[in-house]
């Protein structure tokens, strides 16, 4: 059987879901909010596509859509990881 990229993608997707479920069911409820904001940051991975969409820096619609995609994805990435770090810092604080 020869698999095209789409079929490989499906395999990767399904297996990644299983990995995700395995790990996430082990995350304690006390960390569920940081999990969500962290997952939020990870969904900013679409920045990979956004960077390439904006690579010509012209005023074609495709490039402008790319620019807006970079802005939104970066909000997710930077905001998501920073706020998660801030929250987790509160969990880690030791009592005096």
């Amino acid at each position: 059987m020869i698999m095209g990229p789409f079929l490989i993608g499906i395999y990767v997707f399904v297996l990644a879901i299983f990995v995700g479920v395995e790990i996430i069911t082990k995350i304690p409820p006390t960390l569920h909010t940081p999990l969500m904001s962290g997952a939020n940051a990870v969904s900013g991975i679409t920045i990979v596509g956004a960077l390439s969409a904006a690579k010509y820096a012209d005023t074609e619609i495709s490039s402008l859509l790319g620019l807006f995609a970079i802005i939104l994805a970066t909000i997710n990435v930077v905001g998501g990881f920073l706020v998660t770090n801030r929250m987790l810092g509160m969990f880690g604080r030791k009592k005096k």
């Binding site: 997707f13 990644a16 879901i17 995700g20 990870v42 990979v48």
Partner: peptide
């Protein structure tokens, strides 16, 4: 769409996380 598996993997992880919650 972009045939980029790192998006597929991390997207799947987030998808799974949201579904479990």
């Amino acid at each position: 769409v972009l045939q980029n598996n790192v998006l597929v993997i991390s997207g799947a992880l987030v998808g799974a996380s949201g579904l479990i919650l």
